[in-house]
Simulated scan of single mutants.
Amino acid sequence: MADSTRSTIVIQAPAGEVLDVIADLEAYPQWAKEIREVEILSQDGDGWPDRARFRLDASPIKDTYTLDYSWDVDEAGLGVASWTLVEATILKAMDGSYTLEDEGEGTTRVTYDLLVDVTIPMLGMIKRKAAKVITDTALKDLKKRCEA
């Protein structure tokens, strides 16, 4: 059974700048601790990544997986960037989204939703903890990257 988690953080940067960091998938290994490698497989006509392959090491979950992206955002960077799992070895669900909302005065509220499931037997408590660690770390690392 898939486990989901949600976390929110406020970042001291405009939504457009936060979205630029989120959309720069190839730079993830520089700031997202669990992501070891990213390869963009296809882009849409505007240069947004449509499909990308990731190598993840978020103990106890280690996998190489492919995601399809959807970018439902406006020119200011507000809206939702979401992804769905296309293929993986261990993961059977890795669907999620970043929702960016304007908090005023150049700040952005970012909500990260993640649904994770694995093909190997794993206690639900361990899966939930892994999903929560991935989510919390992703937001903290995103905040550090955007505010640097």
Rank of each mutant, 00 (worst) to 15 (best):
I40F: 07
L41N: 05
L41M: 09
S42C: 04
S42R: 14
Q43P: 00
Q43V: 12
D44N: 12
D44R: 00
G45F: 01
G45M: 02
W48G: 00
P49M: 14
R51T: 14
A52R: 02
A52S: 12
R53V: 02
F54V: 03
F54K: 08
F54I: 02
R55P: 00
R55E: 14
D57Y: 07
D57H: 13
A58N: 11
A58K: 11
S59I: 05
P60S: 13
P60Q: 13
P60K: 14
I61D: 04
K62A: 15
D63G: 08
D63H: 09
T64I: 14
T64K: 14
T64C: 11
S70P: 00
S70E: 12
S70C: 04
W71T: 03
W71Y: 14
D72N: 14
V73H: 05
V73K: 11
D74P: 00
D74E: 06
G77T: 10
G77P: 02
L78A: 08
L78Y: 09
L78F: 08
G79P: 03
V80D: 06
V80F: 05
W83D: 01
W83G: 01
W83F: 11
T84A: 13
L85G: 12
V86L: 13
V86W: 10
E87N: 06
A88E: 03
A88R: 03
